[in-house]
Simulated assay, not measured.
Amino acid sequence: MPRDEIEVPKELREFMLEEAEETFLGQKNGAEKQYRYGNLHIREYDDKFLVHNDKIDPRKDPIGHLVYDAPEVLIGLACAIFGGSEIAKKMMNKNSKKSTVTSGLFSSIISGYVGYLATKKIKNYLE
């Protein structure tokens, strides 16, 4: 849980802003549902709500949101593209087209995930 996230137990008080909209934007982190109200991101679990404030509302500026609130996603994508293309280039000369595509795809997934996790750990450490 990020340091700036607030936990509100449901048993304390069931709450939900009337104007909050259910959304698929954002990492659910195991939540049943998630909502947005401006820059407020609310995740609903069985027993609690987790609430935090994003710097940028992804519904209004998705790229800005990725840059400022979720850079790990952008870095993960960049690592996936770079890692996959580099492995595919190296494999192109050695193997068949099928194994090149397979190894490129596999290395993209691994590279992207490693980039994502590393950036997420750094981001959490700096918060």
Rank of each mutant, 00 (worst) to 15 (best):
residue 31 A to E: 07
residue 55 K to C: 04
residue 48 K to S: 11
residue 49 F to Y: 12
residue 14 E to H: 11
residue 33 K to G: 02
residue 31 A to N: 03
residue 74 L to C: 03
residue 42 I to F: 00
residue 34 Q to N: 02
residue 24 F to K: 14
residue 58 P to R: 10
residue 43 R to N: 02
residue 29 N to Q: 15
residue 29 N to Y: 10
residue 63 I to N: 07
residue 46 D to V: 05
residue 63 I to Y: 04
residue 51 V to M: 12
residue 34 Q to C: 05
residue 71 P to R: 09
residue 31 A to T: 02
residue 31 A to C: 11
residue 53 N to W: 13
residue 52 H to E: 13
residue 26 G to D: 03
residue 19 E to C: 09
residue 51 V to G: 11
residue 23 T to P: 08
residue 27 Q to T: 15
residue 24 F to D: 14
residue 60 K to C: 10
residue 14 E to P: 11
residue 41 H to D: 05
residue 19 E to Q: 13
residue 57 D to G: 04
residue 37 Y to H: 14
residue 73 V to L: 08
residue 26 G to H: 01
residue 33 K to H: 03
residue 61 D to N: 15
residue 27 Q to I: 14
residue 54 D to V: 06
residue 26 G to F: 01
residue 18 E to Y: 09
residue 21 E to D: 03
residue 32 E to I: 11
residue 59 R to H: 15
residue 31 A to G: 05
residue 19 E to W: 05
residue 19 E to S: 14
residue 76 G to P: 01
residue 43 R to Y: 00
residue 54 D to E: 15
residue 36 R to V: 06
residue 53 N to S: 15
residue 72 E to W: 12
residue 73 V to H: 08
residue 31 A to R: 00
residue 26 G to W: 00
residue 77 L to I: 02
residue 37 Y to Q: 10
residue 53 N to F: 14
residue 23 T to K: 08
residue 34 Q to R: 03
residue 39 N to D: 07
residue 18 E to V: 12
residue 29 N to H: 15
residue 60 K to V: 13
residue 22 E to R: 11
residue 47 D to H: 01
residue 24 F to T: 15
residue 28 K to A: 13
residue 52 H to A: 10
residue 45 Y to P: 10
residue 40 L to V: 14
residue 37 Y to R: 10
residue 37 Y to N: 12
residue 57 D to E: 01
residue 77 L to E: 01
residue 20 A to G: 09
residue 66 L to M: 13
residue 16 M to Q: 13
residue 74 L to I: 01
residue 47 D to P: 02
residue 14 E to W: 12
residue 18 E to N: 13
residue 24 F to L: 15
residue 30 G to S: 06
residue 40 L to I: 12
residue 48 K to N: 07
residue 40 L to K: 09
residue 50 L to W: 00
residue 49 F to Q: 06
residue 19 E to M: 08
residue 31 A to K: 00
residue 56 I to G: 06
residue 72 E to S: 07
residue 76 G to D: 03
residue 27 Q to P: 14
residue 64 G to W: 01
residue 61 D to Q: 09
residue 71 P to C: 09
residue 28 K to P: 10
residue 76 G to I: 00
residue 31 A to I: 01
residue 24 F to G: 11
residue 14 E to D: 15
residue 71 P to E: 07
residue 13 R to H: 13
residue 45 Y to L: 04
residue 58 P to N: 06
residue 68 Y to I: 05
residue 66 L to N: 04
residue 52 H to I: 10
residue 16 M to W: 02
residue 34 Q to Y: 02
residue 68 Y to G: 05
residue 19 E to I: 09
residue 21 E to A: 12
residue 52 H to W: 07
residue 41 H to T: 08
residue 33 K to S: 01
residue 70 A to F: 07
residue 34 Q to L: 04
residue 32 E to Q: 06
residue 16 M to L: 15
residue 62 P to G: 09
residue 45 Y to S: 05
residue 35 Y to I: 04
residue 28 K to L: 11
residue 13 R to K: 13
residue 60 K to R: 14
residue 50 L to R: 07
residue 19 E to T: 13
residue 62 P to M: 06
